[in-house]
Design a protein around this nucleic acid. Structure first.
Ligand code: FES
Ligand code: FES
Lengths: 145, 145
DNA sequence: TCTATAAAAGACAAAAATATCTTTTATTAA
DNA sequence: TTAATAAAAGATATTTTTGTCTTTTATAGA
């Protein structure tokens, strides 16, 4: 088990890649994205379709079409992507899988697990979709393998 | 998606419950455990079978039999249970699902994600199986609902 | 207008996780 | 030594996640 679902991992990688290309002034086709982030193309297509329907990513059909981010979207937190794909369990759920996390009736891990959740929440809320554009262009970060 | 698999959540809840009862001097049958931690009985049986085979939990068959922890096992870290059930991806894996996490060729989330992983590792290494026995006996913690 | 392009949508398939059921084995106690 | 108990083992079933394929719709450019 990883922290995020495969779906969510692909979504985040794709989003970072598309953001970088948007910063450079391009739209990207699903094929290129899938190749660059090393994900199964039709599966990724479904994921981006969903993000597109929710308005989290922009897309146009037809020649010279593809996926991209407008300026406003580049400033959205990565948390929005994660929530759209995996829901909010990771932000609010109980570490031992109780149906809800509760201060009044906590599980044994509650106090320590809150710190984990807070760290995750901080990370995802303070990472904008466009945050790593320059680093990616410079080749400082990897999105595949 | 939750942080841990259902299997792992049930395992941790069961382990805390059995530890408490062991501390009180009892062995516990699978039926009682499943009821008390609110998990599907035959599924939980499989999980405990596995832990038993790996020597992480003790068990005896027959009348008055059941699951229990000896003193040494009560001092094991919860991390041992998680590793046995979910493997070590949660301790070492990449947050974006790259095949391995690397300092030399990191994903964009690497620096922040390390903090998350470290927090999880700390939590699981510093929580012994028997740590919450008194709290559980006093009813301070919940393992179901 | 016609054609090529590329995403959207929908149906389908495979694999993994979760859950159940039945039979076997070990242990205790009468 | 037999009967009752409870875990171990093995086979099977269901659901969810992950992955694929085909058809439709929108857009651009010739
Ligand atoms: S009750 Fe389990 S994390 Fe809060
Ligand atoms: S490379 Fe992704 S977390 Fe280290």
């Amino acid at each position: 088990m990883a922290i995020f679902s495969k779906t969510c991992e692909y979504a985040m990688r794709a989003v970072f890649y598309v953001a970088q290309r948007s910063h450079e002034g391009y739209k990207v086709g699903i094929k290129e994205i899938a190749e660059q982030i090393n994900s199964p193309e039709p599966f990724l297509a479904k994921i981006l379709q969903r993000l597109s329907k929710e308005g989290l990513i922009q897309s146009v059909k037809g020649p010279n079409g593809g996926f991209y981010f407008d300026a406003a979207s580049l400033n959205r937190p990565l948390a929005d992507i994660v929530t759209a794909v995996d829901g909010n369990a990771i932000f609010t759920g109980c570490g031992l899988g109780l149906t809800y996390c509760s201060e009044a009736n906590p599980c044994p891990l509650h106090e320590e697990f809150k710190k984990v959740r807070n760290q995750i929440t901080y990370m995802l809320n303070n990472t904008t979709i466009g945050k790593f554009n320059l680093g990616l262009i410079k080749g400082k970060f990897s999105l595949n393998k």
